[in-house]
Design a protein around this nucleic acid. Structure first.
Lengths: 226, 226
DNA sequence: TGCCGAATGTCAGCTGCTGACATAATGTCG
DNA sequence: CGACATTATGTCAGCAGCTGACATTCGGCA
C-alpha cells in the first residue's frame, strides 16, 4: 500500500494518506463520476475525453495518466467490484465446497454495494445504469467481457489452490469458474432487460443469480419437451 | 466455374456472379490474407491499416469500405466459421435434444475446416495461428468475446424455437447456450496453450470439446476432494 | 527556506476512422 | 457499338483516441 509521508503514521494499518495521495484519489473519483454522468447523458461514443477532462478541470494528458483508455474510466467501478469479489472469494474458508464459496462471495459483494449511500457512484442504481450503458455500447461490452474472462482466470487459480489441484491438468476449476461466470452474466442481462420486474436492491440481483443456478441442472438435462 | 457476364444469368439460383462481385470477393480475400500474414509477422498493434491496404494495392478508404474496423479483418474467418456453425445448428433435426444438436453442429463445423486445403486461410493451421493471435492481443480478445456473446444470443433463439419455448421466461435455452459457449472457449484455450500435446487436426479440437463436456458434471458436483 | 521527486500541462505527432466529393470501372439498354 | 446509370475506388480534410518528450509547478521533507 501507500507509504507513510511522515513518521507520525507509524500505524501499519496506514489509512493516513498525504495530501498528494488524497488529491490524486479525489481527481480520479471526479473523473469517474464526470465520465459516468456524461456517458449517461450524451452516450459513450458522443462523449469526448476532452469534455471529461474539462469537466474536472484537468488536461487530457492527465486523464490518460489515470486511465489507460476511454473504456477504463467507464468500467472503473465495475473493476473495483470485481476485485472485491475476488477478495471475498480468497477469504472463504477452505472447508466450503467451491460452488458454495462463490455463491457466498457474490452475495457478500452485492450486499456491500447495498450499504453504500443511495445515489453514490458505487450504489445499486448506479450499477444498473452502468450495466445498461455497457450492454448498449459494443465497445464497452467487449472490454467488459474481456475483464470477465480475466476474472475467470483468477477464479480458476483460487479454486485450484483451495482444492490443491493443478488447473492445467484438471479441467474442473476452469469449468466451474466459467459456468459461474456465465450464470452471473446472464443474471446481469436479466436484471438490465427487465429491471422493473425485479427488485432493484442487491436482493433482487441475488435472487436472480439463485434462479439461474437452479435452472442449470434442468438446462443440461436431456430434452426439455412438455 | 466460368461466369457469363451477359443476360444468361436468368437462373434464380444465381451462383454466377458478375465480374464486379468476383473482383470484390477477391480483394476482400486478399485483404484478409494480407492482414493475417502481417499480424502474425509484426503483431497486431504494430501493423497499420495503410500497410495492409498498400499490400493489396488499395487505398485506406477502400479498406474501411470492406471492414468496419481493424478488428473485423482479423476476425473475418472466425466470423465465417461462427456463421457456419449457426447454419449447421439450424439444419439439425428437431427430434434431437438440444445438447446433442450443438455437439453435432460444432463437430460438423470443424470437420468442414479439415477438408480445406492444408495451408489456405481457412485451414486448421491458420485457425490455430489465429487463436494464438487473438489470445495474445487484448483488443482482439475483447472483440472476439463480444462476437461470442452475440452468437450465444442467436443460439438461444434457435434452441428456444426448436423446443417451442419463450427464451425470456424459460432460462434453460440461455443457460445451455452459455454453458456450451464456455465449453467451446475453454477448449480453444486448451488447444492454443498446449497445441503440441494435442492433435492439430479437427479431431484434436473435437476430442478436447468432448473432454470438457465430460468434466462438466464432475465440476458442478459438490466438493472435489477425495 | 530550499531542495527533490511526483504530478501536471503543453506540444507535436501517429493511427484509426469518417464524410464529402471527384473519378474510374462496370453493367445495361437502345 | 455507344450512351447512361450504377457502383466501386481514390483523394482530401478532419476529428478523436492515444503517446512520447520536455517544461513547469506543487507537495513533501530536511
Amino acid at each position: 500500500m501507500a507509504a507513510q509521508p511522515t513518521e507520525a503514521t507509524t500505524d501499519p494499518g496506514c489509512r493516513v494518506l498525504g495530501l498528494r495521495e488524497r488529491k490524486k484519489q479525489r481527481t480520479r473519483d471526479s473523473l469517474v463520476e464526470a465520465a459516468h454522468r456524461l456517458f449517461l447523458v450524451h452516450g459513450y461514443g458522443r462523449t469526448t475525453i476532452d469534455e471529461i477532462a474539462a469537466t474536472v478541470d484537468v488536461s487530457q494528458r492527465t486523464f490518460f495518466r489515470y486511465f489507460e483508455n476511454k473504456e477504463e474510466v467507464a468500467l472503473a467501478v465495475m473493476a473495483d467490484a470485481e476485485d472485491f469479489f475476488i477478495e471475498c472469494l480468497r477469504r472463504r474458508p477452505a472447508e466450503e465446497n467451491p460452488l458454495e464459496a462463490m455463491r457466498a462471495s457474490i452475495t457478500e459483494s452485492w450486499r456491500s454495494l447495498g450499504s453504500v449511500e443511495h445515489a453514490g457512484p458505487g450504489s445499486v442504481t448506479a450499477a444498473l445504469e452502468l450495466f445498461e450503458l455497457i450492454e448498449s455500447t459494443p465497445t464497452l461490452l467487449a472490454a467488459h467481457l474481456r475483464h470477465t474472462a480475466e476474472q475467470e482466470r483468477q477464479v480458476t487459480v483460487i479454486l485450484a489452490e483451495r482444492e490443491g489441484l493443478d488447473p492445467v491438468t484438471d479441467l474442473r476449476p476452469r469449468l466451474l469458474a466459467a459456468v459461474f461466470g456465465a450464470v452471473v452474466r446472464l443474471s446481469h442481462l436479466s436484471w438490465t432487460s427487465d429491471a422493473a420486474a425485479h427488485q432493484v436492491g442487491p436482493d433482487g440481483m441475488i435472487a436472480l443469480i439463485e434462479r439461474h443456478f437452479d435452472q442449470l441442472g434442468p438446462a443440461l438435462a436431456g430434452s426439455w419437451r412438455h
